[in-house]
Amino acid sequence: MQIYLPIAGLPVDAFVVVALSIAVGFISGLFGVGGGFLMTPLLIFLGIPPAVAVASVSSQIAASSMTGALAYWRRSAIDFKLSFVLIAGGVAGALLGVMFFNAMQRQGRLDAVIVFSYIFLLGTIGSLMLIESLRAILFSSTKARSQMRTGRDSSIEGLPFKIEFHRSGLYVSVIPLFLLALFIGFAGSLLGVGGGFILVPALIYLFRVPTAIVVGTSLAQQLITMIAATLLHAATNHSVDILLALILILGGTFGAQFGARAQVKMRAEYFRLLLGLLVFGVAVRFAGDVLIAPEDPFQASRTDVGR
C-alpha cells in the first residue's frame, strides 16, 4: 500500500516502512539501544531525502526515550542532577547541530556530510565493538572486563567546576560531561541518532557512573535533546514529516516491546558482537555509496517547485 508523505513529497510503500520500523524497534528492544543509527540510514537507503529522514527520526527517538525514561523513573533509576548537566550540553549541541545542518543544506553539501559522518561514526564505534567483543569471546571475558575498568582518566580528575552527584556517587567536573553531551547533541541532531550507544559506554567507562543508573539518565538526556532537535528542525528547515514520524513511532514502539520480551539465550559477548556487526554493516553500506562508481554521476534536485 502506497502512502504519500506530505513533507517528503513522495509516495512510499507503507508496509515497507512499518516492517522496517518494527524490525528496528525489535533490534533496539533486544539490544537496549535507541535504534536511530539504524532507522535513519535505512530510510535514506529507501530513497527518503536525508534531511527528512534525520528530522523525522528525531521525533521517533523522543517517543521511544519517553517510554524508556518513564520505566526507569518509576524505578527511580535516574540521576536527575547528572541528567540536567547532560541535557544542558545536549540541547546546546542540538542547537549547533541544526545550525550546521541548515548551513550544509544551503550549500548543497548536507547529503555528503551525513554520509561521511555515518561512515566515520559508525565505522569507528562498530569496529571498537567488534574488537572488544571478539577479544572477550576469544580470551577470558573476565580479563577483558577488568581491563576496561581501569578507573577514571586522570585528565578528567584535574578539571575545575567539580560537582557532587549523590545519586551516582560521583564527584566530577561538569566540563567533560557537558562537552560529551554537547558532542552527542550535535551528532544526534545532524544524523538523527539518539546517541545512547556513545553516551552509555562513555558514562560507564570514563566517569564510572553505576550501570543501574546510567541507562535511565542517558534516556532522560536523549528525551530532552531529541525534543529540542525535533523542534529546531521543524522551526528552521521544515523537514519533519509528521506522517512518517507517526509510522515510525507506532512500528518502533511495538517492535521494541517484542524485542525487550524476546527471550534470547545468548552470551553477552555474542550480543555485543552482533550489535557491532550491525553498526559496522551500516557504515560499510554508506561507504559503498561513495566508494563505488555511481550508475549515473548526475543528480537533479528541484529547488523551488512546489515539492
Binding site: 521511544s64 519517553m66 517510554t67 523542534l231 521543524a234 521544515h238 507506532l250 514502539t253 516491546q257
Partner: peptide
C-alpha cells in the same frame, strides 16, 4: 514551523506515554 514542531512533539510524547502505560511490566 514552531507550532507544527510542538504538535509533532506532543504526538510523540503522548504515544511514548501510552506505550509505557500499555506495556508496563512492573
Amino acid at each position: 514551523g514552531v507550532l507544527y514542531g510542538l504538535a509533532v512533539i506532543i504526538m510523540a510524547l503522548s504515544m511514548g506515554l501510552i506505550a509505557s502505560v500499555i506495556f508496563r511490566r512492573d
